[in-house]
Design a protein around this nucleic acid. Structure first.
Lengths: 148, 148
DNA sequence: CTTGCTCCTCCAGCGGCTAGAGGATGTAGC
DNA sequence: GCTACATCCTCTAGCCGCTGGAGGAGCAAG
C-alpha cells in the first residue's frame, strides 16, 4: 500500500494540487489521512478515486453526476440503471452540442470565405454579425450551459 | 428614431434586461441616454449594437473579441484582416471542439452500449470511468475553456 | 543557520451572466 | 387624492469548476 504526498498524487493522477484540495473540500474525494505535520497522505484508493474523477471530468460529466457515479461505485450490488441514465443524458447533451457546433462551423465558414480582405465597410464578417438575417443557418445558438 | 425602455430593448434584441445592464457595465454597450427619472432610454443604434453582440455571443465569440469587432465596425476604413483573423480563430476553435466532442461521443456510446443493465459490479459505465485504459479512444479530454 | 522545497489554510478571481434585496418612480383605476 | 401594480434603479452575491496568490509552518541538505 503506497502512501504518497499530494505532489506525488497530483503527478500520478494528473489532477493538479489545488484541484485535489478542491475536490476534498466539496466532498468529492474523501479526506485523506494526515501525517504528523498535518500533511495529506494519499493511499491507493484515493488515487483510484482521483483517476475516476479525472476521467469523468474529461468526459464532461458534472461534479454532481460524478458524485452519484462514485456513490454507485461504492455499492456494487445496486442496479446500474442510474449510472446508465447519467451516461445516456451526457451522450444526448454531447450530441446536441455537436449539432450546435456544426451549425456554427457552417456559419463561420460562410463568413470567413465571403471575406474579400478589403475594408471593414465591406467586410462579410462584420456584416453578418450585424445582421442575423444573413445567416446561412438560422438555428445556431441558445445553448444553455457551457461545457465542452 | 425610436426611443425605448430597457424592457422593450430586451424584447427587441433578445438580450435579457440584467444582461443589457451588464454589457453596459463592462463597456461593451456604450451607456445609453437617460430620461428625467434616470431610466435608460435606448435608441436605434443601441439596439443594433445589442443585436450584433447577441449574434456574436451565439456564435461563441468571447466578450473581448466582440469588443474588438465592435471597434472595427465603428471604423469602416480599416482593413478587415483583424476581423477575419478573429473569425478564423473562432472557426479553428469550433473545429477542435467538434473533434473533441466526436471522440467523447464514441466513448460514451461504447459505455452505454456495453451496459448489460445488471448490477453496478459489472457495469460497463462505471468500469470504463474507473479505468481509462478501457477507453475506445485515448485522446479525449484536456479542453481548456468551456464554451459551447 | 540559512537556503530551498514542500506543505498548510484562507481568500480572491476568472467568464458571462443571473438573481435578489431594497427603494424610487410611473401609470391606471376608483 | 389614493391605492395597487409595474417597471425601473443600484448594489451585492451567487453560479461552475477551478486557479492562483498571500502568508506562514515544517523539514532536509549544505
Amino acid at each position: 500500500m503506497r502512501a504518497m504526498s499530494i505532489k506525488d498524487a497530483a503527478r500520478e493522477s494528473g489532477v493538479k494540487i489545488p484541484t485535489i484540495r478542491y475536490y476534498e473540500e466539496i466532498g468529492l474525494l474523501p479526506a485523506p489521512g494526515r501525517d504528523g505535520s498535518n500533511r495529506r497522505v494519499f493511499a491507493e484508493a484515493d488515487l483510484q478515486r482521483l483517476a475516476f474523477i479525472r476521467h469523468a471530468r474529461e468526459l464532461g460529466f458534472e461534479v454532481d453526476a460524478i458524485r452519484t457515479l462514485l456513490d454507485l461505485q461504492d455499492r456494487p450490488d445496486q442496479p446500474c440503471s442510474a449510472a446508465d441514465a447519467i451516461a445516456q443524458a451526457r451522450l444526448a447533451d454531447v450530441n446536441q452540442r455537436i449539432r450546435s457546433l456544426l451549425a456554427l462551423k457552417a456559419e463561420l465558414e460562410a463568413m470567413v470565405e465571403g471575406c474579400r480582405h478589403g475594408h471593414v465597410s465591406e467586410c462579410r464578417v462584420i456584416e453578418t454579425l450585424a445582421d442575423h438575417g444573413r445567416c446561412v443557418y438560422e438555428q445556431h445558438g441558445a445553448r444553455k450551459s457551457g461545457r465542452l
